[in-house]
Write a protein that binds this DNA or RNA. Structure first.
Length: 1042
RNA sequence: GCCGGAGUGGCGGAAUUGGCAGACGCGCGGGAUUCAAAAUCCCGUUCUGGCAACAGAGUGAGGGUUCGAGUCCCUCCUCCGGCACCA
């Protein structure tokens, strides 16, 4: 080996030793330990910044390169904020309860606690390898009893509270809120004292003079218990779930295939109601929507949450059953003498009737049939003997289909006539009642009034089953225009038929239609244009109203009411509600008023959001801390008894139930007989055998990070007040709705009960994109992994074995495709700093983008070039180019521009362009013969958040004794970021014709004159008239000349 | 199906939010250095035509608004995320 190569080795960028040295330094010096304000070392007067990652589920395969994307970003922000003088809370933990660990345990018979611990150790080791500045003293795991003690505590809070939607209260910050979770004891007291009571159906009645008021003391003990229990935020209800008897368990939707069979073992799965713990998230619908306004979240995510909660306004309407009721002169009389009819009928008490919710009460006259969900409680009562067999078959079939499946499959609507009829309350006419699976039990009342003339799903259904279609809203002419275009495009022969009667009045159209029939083509755009005048439009509108089927689609927008009741007969209805010629909004309020006056309905607000099914029949989760008495009593265990630990078990399998879909599952905890049986005050109780869903721990973990060792409270009050809310929360967009909505809900409950000080947990949210990976597709469309493919020059790819050409595509990383990239390999080859820089440089943080190992060396080169800016590779000493002289104006300008760009980009999380700015700086500095310390030192600080190991090492070599983690972020001088001259583009009619350098501050007039004086411009406008000159200062001059 | 998002060179992407399309990186081509290679440094690189000056085209497709559109509006196509028991 020659002398030269040895010397090169001496001072090269040795990332391995640099990175391990600085990671050790940070550990030993507790560099990133953050104390709470009450603790000795804390500086409580500094501003705080709480930056949080969505904590990972520690899976068996370890971190893949997708995980650290968000962690790198938050680490950069955390380090940047520390340098800006903030107290930074930047913790990490593990969401360690969950299904995969349990399934792995069932397969291998290794206890999930064992595999979970192993996986967490791997994750922690990998995360430390990246040099993240987490405060590891605050690490938590949701499966740790010290943690889930308080998950259970939260559950008990919800079981012991009720939602008072009448409570209007002022929060400590002066904000007025309607509705509040209150201790259940307050409700109990109000009922016991007689201040409040209940009605016959045990609904709360707040005024003693209400005719429905029942005296509390007159109720039986179970009735009293029921009246209180039904108000709890955590309650038990019967809810349809995917019950698989052969596996003895309830399956997740994703574990059931489209045929209604289980993924594991292909056993039949039934949709069947089961008693489940529920959380009353629906009570918070309004607040979950309203409070989004104050959050700095991506607008699309807010929109998704709003849509998920799905607030709509409309009306609830009663449709009396035709076989039970007569309607004459506006008077309803019941055919069944045994039925007691309330003195004043209203939506709630109308007997023998179907209740529906509609967002379009204005289309009530167009309701020509009704549809019930197959699970609707009234199906049995309504179905006639003749239809029973068909109806039963259909219900059975539907029970195999998931909600998604039922609404997703739009190819063909299915349904069955029940034989029953209801009376449309405005027309007085009987309309048939069907059942169909496109109506879901979970939304509204599980029944709809079908308006095929105004709803696309009802329209398709009516077309399929030949039910009457009555348009009740006149379409807009835009819609007619659009339909005409769409229909010609589709060459719809049925649409042609519908135009025959129009053709009588437009001979030209008639000829054209005949030609189209001959040629089997659609109507030509030109021909249709004869209809697009005012007369034609009127004819077309009329035509749609008479022949909606011909148009292939219903008009579902807002417009002017028609056929309501105008030209319709109204049977038996006294004083029909005339909506004709009213715009939709007006028609809505008119019909609601009419319905309310007659006790047939009322205005209503509805939400798509459903209450949260909270129990799981699984082992690896938080046990639900509740005891069941023999008499049906349900009591939460005492808070002092928490945590209620999971019993040690050897077999976590559920108990299969042979050949029956009737039995109730026995969750794995049912096998822990000793654990499940409990004595309290001489009574025997059984523990609840369910566990909580994985969401539970993630609903509040951000609070635990604040005070992870607190044994008496979820966290210390003062610390909570100091750190909350989370200033920046970063995680995958796949959590856009569920996790974030559930966590917001828990937070609001805790807020109402006074345990937290902010209305919302996460002030700013950022969703990082997914890292994908390359895969390849062969000629048959089969996707193969990179391990089977060779790359040729010029981005050609062939199969290793056959040489067959394949096309490169972007796919999700998956074990099956063998395109998962392991960060350990990348780090050992290039180092953590290179890895961090590469991931941040790949593209915008929120975009999905493919991992390309080929591009990694580019960032490694950047690290080496930065290294050489400071260190002489031959001597391992400081570079001789480094000097103490004042910097050159160019270098100084480059530095100040870089600080400004990086700072702005970091604050807006545009880390890819921040690194581009660093590249630019290095490109400018590299060729300089002298590099002033006054430029290099601030640059090293700018680099520090991105490549912390490299920056620390350079900082150290530049003569500093301690870490740069708390050095102040360098400031820039705005003047030094501006160029003195700028290039201006001169356009003629929007085309660039010339460029010129001018002083940056040149005024508009002078710019214009300069442009006119330009040779090429003068030539281009010669002989033309100048119509207009547009001057954009500092950018361009556009001359419009003809 | 419903809700949300995205389509820009050979590749990843940039574009001050209506003002020079392609910053920066990868790859590729050329040069310097070297006995040679690696590494490093410099130059070039959207496409088409042309030796060149230059001309024309160009941001998924089609249409529109505007002096000016990757950016705004309408229609369509493709891909990605979520759809409540994966997390």
């Amino acid at each position: 080996m020659t002398e030269v190569t040895q010397r090169i080795k001496l001072g090269r960028y040795d990332f391995t030793s640099i990175e391990s040295r600085w990671q050790q330094y940070w550990d030993q010096h507790r560099t990133f330990r953050m104390e709470n304000p009450s603790e000795a070392d804390a500086c409580a007067d500094k501003p705080k910044y709480y930056i949080l990652d969505m904590f990972p589920y520690p899976s068996g395969s370890g971190l893949h390169v997708g995980h650290p994307l968000g962690y790198c970003a938050t680490d950069i922000i955390a380090r940047y904020k520390r340098m800006c003088g903030y107290n930074v809370l930047h913790p990490m933990g593990f969401d360690s309860f969950g299904l995969p660990a349990e399934q792995y345990a069932i397969q291998t018979n290794v206890h999930p606690a064992v595999t979970t611990k192993k996986n967490i150790d791997t994750y922690r080791r990998q995360m430390k390898m990246f040099g993240f500045s987490y405060d590891w003293h605050r690490e938590i795991a949701t499966s740790d009893a010290r943690f889930y003690k308080f998950t259970q505590w939260c559950f008990i809070q919800m079981a012991q509270s009720w939602y008072d939607d009448q409570a209007t209260w002022t929060a400590p910050d002066g904000y007025t809120i309607k509705g509040r979770a209150r201790p259940i004891a307050e409700l109990e007291a109000a009922l016991k004292s007689g201040q409040w009571g209940v009605d016959e159906s045990l609904n709360l009645v707040r005024h003693a003079d209400d005719e429905q008021f029942c005296v509390w003391g007159d109720l039986s003990e179970p009735q009293q218990r029921e009246a209180i229990d039904r108000h709890r935020l955590a309650f038990i209800d019967e809810i349809p779930v995917n019950w698989c008897p052969a596996l003895g368990t309830v399956l997740a939707n994703e574990e059931v295939d489209s045929e209604g069979l289980s993924d594991r073992g292909s056993h039949p799965v039934y949709r069947r109601p089961l008693r489940q713990w529920m959380l009353r998230i629906t009570k918070y619908s309004e607040r979950l929507i309203d409070d989004l306004a104050e959050l700095d979240w991506p607008e699309p995510i807010k929109l998704m949450q709003r849509n998920w909660v799905g607030r709509s306004t409309g009306a609830e309407v009663v449709f009396p059953l035709a076989n039970m009721w007569n309607l004459k002169d506006g008077q309803w009389s019941c055919k069944d003498s045994a039925t007691t009819i309330p003195a004043s009928l209203n939506y709630d008490n109308f007997p023998h009737a179907i209740r529906v919710y509609t967002t379009r009460p204005d289309t009530l006259y167009g309701a020509t049939y009704m549809v019930l969900a197959p699970e609707h409680a009234m199906v049995e009562q309504i179905t006639t003997r003749a239809q029973k067999q068909q109806v039963d078959n259909y219900i059975k079939e539907a029970s195999h289909r998931s909600d998604l499946d039922r609404t997703a499959d739009m190819k063909e609507k299915t349904g069955v006539f029940t034989g029953g009829y209801a009376i449309n309350p405005v027309t007085g006419r009987p309309i048939p009642i069907w059942i169909a699976d496109y109506v879901l039990m979970g939304y509204g009342t599980g029944a709809i009034m079908a308006v095929p003339g105004g709803d696309s799903r009802d329209f398709e259904f009516a077309c399929t089953f030949d039910l009457p279609i009555v348009p009740v809203v006149t379409p807009t002419s835009e819609w007619i225009q659009q339909r005409l275009t769409a229909m010609t495009a589709r060459i719809d022969q049925r649409a042609l038929d519908g135009f025959d009667d129009l053709a009588k009045e437009y001979p030209q159209l008639g000829e054209e239609i005949a030609k189209c029939r001959q040629r089997s083509t659609g109507l030509g755009e030109k021909t249709l244009s004869v209809l697009r005048d005012d007369v034609g439009m009127t004819k077309l509108l009329h035509h749609y109203i008479c022949h909606p089927q011909a148009w292939g689609e219903a008009f579902t927008g807002e417009g002017v009411a028609v056929n309501s009741p105008g030209d319709m007969d109204v049977d038996g209805v006294d004083n029909p509600c005339v909506l004709d010629d009213m715009p939709t909004a007006e028609a809505k309020s008119a019909i609601i008023e009419w319905l309310e006056a007659r006790g047939l309905g009322r205005g209503a607000v509805n939400y798509k959001l459903r209450d949260w099914v909270f129990s799981r029949q699984k082992y690896w989760g938080e046990p639900i801390p509740v005891l069941h008495g023999e008499d049906g009593e349900v009591v939460a265990i005492d808070v002092d008894e928490l945590p209620l630990e999971l019993p040690e078990m050897e077999d976590f399998k559920p108990t299969p139930v042979a050949g029956s879909d009737e039995q109730v599952p026995t969750p794995p905890l049912g096998r822990a007989k000793d654990w499940a049986k409990v004595e309290r005050n001489g009574k025997t109780y059984r523990r609840d055998l369910n566990t909580m869903p994985q969401w539970a721990g993630s609903c509040w973990y951000y609070l635990r990070f604040i005070d992870p060792d607190n044994e008496t409270r979820i966290c210390d009050t003062d610390a909570e007040r100091y750190w909350m809310p989370v200033d920046l929360y970063v995680g995958g967009a796949e959590h856009a709705v569920l996790h974030l909505l559930y966590a917001r809900f828990w937070h609001k409950v805790l807020y109402d009960l006074g345990y937290v000080s902010t209305r919302e947990p996460f002030k700013r949210l950022f969703n990082q994109g997914m890292i994908q990976s390359f895969a390849y597709r062969d000629a048959r469309g089969l996707v193969v992994g990179p391990d089977q493919v060779d790359a040729l020059a010029g981005d050609q790819f062939v199969m290793k074995e056959t040489g067959e050409k394949v096309e490169r595509i972007v796919a999700k990383m998956s074990k099956g495709l063998k395109n998962v990239v392991n960060p350990d390999e990348i780090i050992s080859q290039y180092g953590a700093d290179t890895f961090r820089l590469y991931e941040m440089y790949m593209g915008p943080l929120d975009a999905a983008k493919p991992w390309s190992t080929r591009d990694v060396p580019g960032l490694h080169k950047l690290c080496q070039r930065i290294w050489r800016l400071v260190v002489d590779e031959n001597t391992d000493e400081l570079s001789p180019a480094l000097c103490e002289d004042a910097p050159s104006p160019d270098a100084l300008r480059a530095l100040h521009k870089t600080i400004k760009r990086v700072q702005a980009d970091v604050e807006s999380l545009k880390l890819n362009t921040a690194i581009a700015a660093i590249f630019d700086f290095v490109n400018i500095l590299t060729p300089l013969e002298k590099r002033s310390r006054a430029v290099i030192e601030p640059f090293v600080l700018v680099l520090a958040p991105f490549a912390p190991h490299l920056a620390e090492e350079l900082w150290h070599r530049l003569g500093h004794d301690s870490t740069l983690a708390y050095e102040p972020w360098p400031s820039y001088d705005e003047v030094l970021t501006q160029d003195e001259t700028v290039e201006i583009v001169v356009q003629i009619c929007g085309k660039v014709k010339s460029r010129m350098m001018v002083p940056a501050n040149l005024e508009d007039e002078a710019l214009k004159d300069a442009a006119m004086a330009d040779d090429r411009v003068a030539r281009a406008i010669e002989g033309k008239t100048i119509r207009k000159v547009i001057v954009v200062k500092g950018r361009l001059v556009n001359i419009v000349a003809t």
